[in-house]
Deep mutational scan, measured.
Amino acid sequence: TTEYTFTDDEEARRAIEELKKRGLTFRYEKHGTTWRVRVD
């Protein structure tokens, strides 16, 4: 499991789109302004 942290909404959304394109399994949660994206 790899975890990424983003504080920029645009950056987080781009990363999420990219992961979807690659067909990877991931989860994300947003805490205030911080996004945590975990890739299995």
Score class of each variant (00 low, 15 high):
T7W: 09
L24H: 07
R14I: 10
T34S: 06
E10V: 10
I16R: 01
F26V: 15
T25I: 12
Y28I: 15
I16A: 02
V39F: 05
Y4A: 02
V37H: 00
L24K: 07
D40I: 15
K30I: 09
G32Q: 04
R22P: 01
F6P: 00
E18Q: 09
V39H: 02
E29A: 07
Y4I: 06
F26K: 00
D40G: 11
R22N: 09
R13T: 09
H31L: 13
Y4Q: 03
F6K: 00
R36H: 15
R27W: 15
A12I: 04
G32H: 03
E17L: 11
V39K: 00
T33Y: 06
K21C: 11
R27T: 15
A15R: 04
R13S: 06
T25R: 12
T1V: 14
R27D: 08
E17N: 10
G23C: 03
T2E: 08
A15Y: 15
E29N: 05
L24V: 13
T5R: 06
L24M: 09
T1E: 10
K21V: 07
F26E: 00
R36P: 01
I16L: 07
G23R: 04
F26D: 00
R27H: 14
R27I: 13
T33N: 14
G23K: 04
E11L: 08
K20D: 05
H31A: 07
G32A: 04
E11H: 08
K21A: 11
I16M: 13
A15G: 04
D40T: 13
E3K: 03
D40C: 15
I16V: 04
G23E: 03
T33F: 08
D8Y: 03
V37A: 00
E11G: 05
V37E: 01
L24D: 04
K21T: 08
R38H: 14
T1Q: 11
K30F: 05
F6A: 00
E10I: 10
V37M: 03
T5M: 10
K30S: 03
R14D: 06
E11N: 06
E29P: 00
G23M: 03
I16T: 02
H31P: 01
V37L: 08
K20V: 12
Y28P: 02
T1W: 15
K30L: 06
K21R: 13
G32F: 03
K30G: 01
K20N: 07
T5F: 14
K30H: 07
T34H: 08
V37G: 00
T7A: 06
R36F: 15
R13Y: 13
D40E: 13
E18M: 11
T33L: 10
R13H: 11
E17W: 11
R14G: 05
V39P: 02
R38D: 05
A12S: 02
G23N: 05
A15L: 14
T25A: 10
K30A: 03
T1Y: 15
E11C: 08
R22A: 13
Y28M: 08
R13V: 07
E17D: 10
E10R: 10
R14E: 08
T1G: 10
A12Y: 06
E3C: 12
V37Q: 00
K20F: 10
T5W: 15
L19N: 01
V37Y: 01
F6I: 03
E3R: 04
T2I: 14
Y28L: 12
A15Q: 05
K20S: 09
